[in-house]
Design a protein around this nucleic acid. Structure first.
Lengths: 201, 201, 201, 201
DNA sequence: GTATAACCGAGACGGTACGTCAGGTCTTGAT
DNA sequence: ATCAAGACCTGACGTACCGTCTCGGTTATAC
């Protein structure tokens, strides 16, 4: 093997330029108006070069998002409440980002018709975030703060759903620190932690 | 004498056929693949006729959704928990409907670039639902079940966000009765109703 | 018979307005850009009213031309040369008219695909003019100026062809008195009248 | 180094196919019924490809005509009469061609509204033919057959007008050898050549 | 004087074609 | 093998007229 590596090598700066141009256009104009031709033009290159790296728009955007929002750094703060607040502050930043707001709904629409791309998106973007939340719950169980959670999926939806909603629907209040507190409190209450519900004193 | 209503009147069956065809295609193929030409063809008419009634795809789809999911019948069940369960069962049906699942994300994407259409969507589709939730809370306050809620927006996001999430993101569990219970319990807990959190016995 | 003549009679001013509007638009914008809708609008009426009087654009324009350029008044001037000059002066005016220049070529194009309309155009517009020319030749024969002409069609083409050409092709010299002299001289020469060819002294 | 000639070169077979399809449709159905879509379809290609080469129907048809009837080969036959007969036989063939008959009037109509296209048509189609006629007259002057012609435009109209008329107006006799003789005789008479007028013996 | 019939305005309707835009592929010459 | 350039096929866009139709309402003659 390794007869590979013949011919002119790829210009790696082009890969970056393409992903960056994609993010810029997503933030400026949204998904539908982010055309392949415009991405290539803004990156200073051409369509065939783009297609050599990304099979279509869905994959291009998915890869741009993964590249930009790839991994949540979840720290162990020592308490469940601390971990959840950390998680939610990160998510508020994420869903407040104009790139993600511009990309999300349009991308989700196309994923409905492209099962393969949907799988990629789930495994590289969605699943890691949900896994991070599950890990927070596991650590809390190990600490003895809560009993083993029997439906971590629900907790994920509970903490992320309201944020997603504010990010995607028009005319709603902005994502802010209040929302962090509210979602964390709701999660703690749902997990049976006393003092979780209502306002903190 | 009213000089209004001149000329050949519109064939209202066509209006119906167009909205129905729109819903069918949204359910079958999603928003992006629901082309104006296909809608017109399936409705048994032509593009100019469609454009006489709907200025563009955003308005067509918005009107189709409003027509189909126009008004939530909120009954007064006598208790806050009952009202919320009623509300959530209705929302589970709504977000589980393939028409709405097919339409939602794509429509939201285009609304980002069309402020006028976004306003219409908000006022005719979103606002009435949030108002219904607010009414449920007011009734509970009048009954003395809860103190006046100082952030009804948050309760709306709390009960709807998780449903929206399951409806829009790929690879998540289905919308079911369990989710009704979980969201209602979370809402009650967040409203300070004792016994709200956790599973009901 | 004569159960006709019931109901509201036609408003004859509309017929006039339609023909006039047709001529105006033909002169301003040519045949192709003279749409039925514009004619009706400018006449202050509507399409169905127009179609009640004219089956289609070809007939509308034909009737407008016949109405405007209906009949050549051919006077007997006493000499062949005088008759021909009279004829040609009339034709120069005719082919110089912006209405006819605007209408002619476009109308001829559509006549190619509508044999019935072509027949109407020939019989009501073309044939009378050629007959007038033939009559001039007959009168000259009766006067003894020329022998009986055995190919009057050719004389028609000879006197009219150059005018038609200048009227229809772009970039050619204007129709003027010189052309009257030249065509008359050529016709006389072709008819064997000595002194016909060349310039008159 | 010339940076010209980049990108994929045009498939010249497509250019040919488009011009040929245009001529076929012009001959079959005339100008008005020669739609861009049909031309593209018959050429086995698509509208955008057609529009890449021809800005609109006027230019497409003009270029098709120039391509097909591009240049009159005027031979020097040694005599004025011979040259004119040669010219006229060529013109009879030209105006008898169904492609040109189908295209001419419709094209002329649209040229009235498109000055730029009219200029192209004049310079590439009309002017060369008139120049050829002028050259015939110059050669005759050089030979001493006639004095210098002071109005060659008139001779052009004289020899071409009658042919154009027969080609464009419906219901007229066909273009034939007789017309060649008649026009040549008229031209010679008009140029002052004795024996020009009337029938040849 | 009251039917009755044709007229008129307005505008919806099914069509067909327009000229444009973008997606995704392919071909060329050059690096 | 990759790159810039751009041609190519495909399919949908939103618009413009065509010629027809259906209305509500208006005149006239005919009964």
């Amino acid at each position: 093997m390794s007869v590979n590596q013949m011919g002119r090598p790829r210009d790696e700066r082009l890969g970056r330029a393409l992903l960056d141009a994609t993010c810029e256009l997503l933030a400026e104009r949204g998904y539908a108006a982010t055309t392949i031709e415009d991405v290539a033009r803004r990156a200073g290159t051409t369509k065939p070069t783009l297609y050599r790296r990304h099979r279509n728009r869905v994959e291009l955007v998915t890869e741009a998002l993964v590249d930009r929002f790839g991994h949540d750094p979840t720290h162990d703060t020592g308490t469940l409440r601390g971990d959840l607040e950390d998680l939610q502050r990160h998510q508020v930043t994420l869903f407040g980002d104009p790139v993600l707001r511009g990309a999300m709904v349009g991308l989700l629409d196309e994923l409905r018709a492209d099962e393969e791309a949907a799988t990629v998106f789930v495994s590289r973007f969605l699943a890691p975030r949900r896994a991070a939340t599950a890990r927070v719950l596991e650590r809390a169980t190990e600490r003895g703060e809560i009993a083993a959670c029997d439906d971590p999926e629900w907790i994920c939806d509970l903490v992320t759903g309201p944020l997603l909603m504010r990010a995607m629907l028009p005319g709603l209040p902005p994502l802010d620190e209040t929302l962090v507190e509210q979602t964390v409190a709701a999660a703690l209450a749902s997990l049976g932690v006393s003092g979780g519900a209502g306002r903190r004193p």
